[in-house]
């Protein structure tokens, strides 16, 4: 039990953020029309590309060849996720907005 409490105290800030973010995530998208499911999924897909920050941090402190190579690959993969994700989403949404303006 004390172990659990200790764990909670040690990571309370992170736990706090995690719990609030869970509720926020649910709240923010719960009224999305089904038309937007695909673009929304694609947009969320790009946001989790934030993992690239971790890749940059590891790469930024890599000292041997193996971790340099792995880090380099990780940064490329993360960038693919971010850039590809946002560009694809934008392309999808572009079509919606284009139609609306014409009318």
């Amino acid at each position: 039990m004390t172990e659990v409490l200790k764990f909670f105290m040690e990571y309370r800030e992170a736990i706090f953020i995690i719990i609030l973010s869970i509720f926020l995530g649910i709240e923010v998208i719960s009224h999305v029309p089904s038309v937007l499911h695909t673009p929304l999924m694609s947009g969320a897909n790009a946001i989790h590309g934030v993992v690239i920050i971790g890749a940059i941090i590891v790469m930024g402190h890599a000292h041997n060849v193996l971790s340099m190579i792995l880090g380099f690959i990780a940064v490329i993969l993360g960038t693919l996720n971010v850039v590809g994700g946002f560009v694809v989403t934008n392309r999808m949404l572009e079509m919606f907005s284009k139609k609306k303006k014409q009318k």
Partner: peptide, 23 residues
């Protein structure tokens, strides 16, 4: 984000995790 105490990764990741589940 948890590992690096990195707030951006933590919020971004969890946000997608929970909204993705709802979606």
């Amino acid at each position: 984000g948890f590992l690096y105490s990195n707030q951006a990764m933590l919020t971004g990741g969890i946000l997608v995790g929970s909204s993705g589940t709802i979606l």
